[in-house]
Amino acid sequence: MEKRRKTADIVLFTVALLIAIVFFFPIFFNLMSAFKSNSEILRDAIAFPKGLYLDSFRYLLTETEFPRAIVNSLILTAVSILFMVLVIPMAGYAIERSNAKWTNYVFVYYLAGMMIPFQAYMIPLFKELKMFGMYGSLVGPIVIYVSGSVGFGALLYTSFLKGIPREIEESAAIDGSSKYGIFFRIVFPLLGPCTASMVVLNGLGVWNDFLMPMLVLPSGKPKTMIVEIFYYVGEFSSRWDMIFAGTAMSIVPILIVFLLLQKYFVKGIATGAVKG
């Protein structure tokens, strides 16, 4: 029995290691290719770089609008995440802690919105952005990102809140705390792992989004990092050195944030899955 268990553990570890290598290889290939010239990449794509070729980074940061695209990506991601953290936890808390029937309908309405693909309502949505004067600015994508994340965020927070005892809130209410005081001083700090999970998942989606900035932000001006990288892909030829250098710069912030929040991210997902 013990031998079978050890064999099973070895097999599972080997499979997990192979999967990790498969998923990590594109990142490794991108970071390796970012320090190679275009001719070097075309000559042998999988070879290690002969030296640290930094002209691609220098050109992107000094001769193009890529720095402005970096700023746009940071603004879109940071502001969207800020409003998500301010709005969605309160929505999840109200749905989970309220005994009213209408909150269940609101929750089902949020979940139903997750099942409709973006392409199905894309054109009417853009017309609505034009009607409200948000088309062609960063405000439009931010509003869409925040509203589009409410369904998943409410599901995540309601699942997590089931593991927080109501007695803590009742004790605070007896001590004279208001509903907002109970939420922000007591409940919200306990939602740290869940918030970290939402920040990583939704932040990754906003940072790597291509379609929304491409269609909503004005043409002829720098958009986001992902969109600017796309412009170096040509029909007959592509500047692979610029593409890999730009992609490397877009990967590094995400890796840093994920490594900082990894512990809370895993805990939030695991707790939400168990309690839900």
Rank of each mutant, 00 (worst) to 15 (best):
E2F: 14
R4H: 08
A8D: 06
D9L: 13
I10S: 13
L17E: 05
I19F: 13
A20R: 06
V22N: 03
F23D: 03
F23W: 13
A34S: 15
K36I: 09
N38M: 06
I41M: 07
I41L: 13
I46W: 08
I46V: 12
G51F: 08
D55Y: 10
S56V: 02
T64D: 03
E65T: 07
P67N: 10
I70P: 01
L74W: 06
I88N: 11
G92T: 10
E96L: 02
T103S: 11
V108Y: 14
Y109C: 14
M114F: 05
F118W: 13
Q119H: 05
A120Q: 08
L125R: 11
L125Q: 12
M131S: 15
Y135D: 07
G140V: 07
V143Q: 03
Y145C: 02
S147I: 12
V150H: 06
V150C: 09
T158N: 09
S159C: 12
F160C: 07
P165V: 07
A172T: 05
A172W: 07
D175N: 10
G181E: 09
R185I: 04
L190E: 11
L190Y: 07
G192F: 15
T195S: 15
A196S: 15
S197R: 04
V199Q: 06
N202S: 12
N202M: 12
G203M: 04
V206H: 00
V206G: 00
W207L: 03
F210M: 00
P213E: 04
L217M: 13
L217K: 02
K221Y: 11
K221F: 10
M225I: 05
I226N: 02
V233H: 01
F236D: 03
S238C: 02
R239P: 00
W240L: 13
I243T: 03
A248W: 01
L255P: 00
V274S: 09
K275D: 08
